[in-house]
């Protein structure tokens, strides 16, 4: 057993875990953050995507001990209290989810994608989500969600230098 400490959704936590425990399992089993889902055992589906020190990572692909001292955000920590993150809102507004199992991972991957590309091209969206599988939506509305979120976020922070109502699609 080892002790690891990290900051999850703004809270400092320490847990005693088996060295072989995966970050995804520790989040789910030890911290009851079950919004992070596990959809495969080969790092292919992206359902387990969280943000770790700002990067989107597949939490099933990492030992929890490797995350010692890291800053982690899971889907549960994305909304600002009651205020949903624009990416969360966009996924619902554009019907970018059906069963919702892939959704936390999709949303976390999108948040990072939009930080890199505030006005992403179709190519960048597809590239950015290529590590996330969805079986229900056919991705059409997921891509629309990403574009809608991008637009909303650029409008909200005009620093990005975009005119209101500008479309994410090029």
């Amino acid at each position: 057993m080892s002790k690891v400490s990290f900051t999850v959704n703004g809270q400092k936590v320490s847990v005693d875990i088996e060295e072989r425990a995966l970050l995804a399992d520790v989040l789910r089993d030890n911290l009851q953050l079950t919004g992070t889902h596990i959809g495969c055992d080969t790092s292919q589906c992206g359902c387990c995507t969280v943000r770790l020190n700002g990067s989107a990572v597949k939490s099933c692909t990492m030992l929890a001990v490797q995350a010692d001292e890291a800053e982690i955000t899971t889907i549960e920590g994305l909304a600002d209290n009651e205020r949903l993150h624009p990416v969360q809102l966009a996924f619902s507004a554009c019907h970018g989810l059906q069963c919702g199992f892939c959704t936390p991972g999709m949303i976390m991957a999108t948040v990072e994608l939009l930080e890199r590309f505030p006005d992403p091209t179709d190519e960048q969206i597809r590239e950015g989500l290529s590590g996330n599988l969805c079986r229900c939506t056919g991705y059409v509305n997921i891509e629309a969600s990403v574009r809608a979120a991008a637009t909303a976020m650029r409008v909200a922070s005009p620093a990005a230098g975009v005119v209101e109502g500008g479309r994410g699609r090029r």
Partner: peptide, 23 residues
């Protein structure tokens, strides 16, 4: 202004849905 579309969406986009492994 974007609005939530489906009743089921809020819990699913906030990670508070209850899938079987979550129990």
């Amino acid at each position: 202004m974007m609005e939530l579309m489906r009743h089921e969406d809020h819990r699913l986009i906030t990670g508070s849905g209850k899938f079987t492994a979550d129990w």
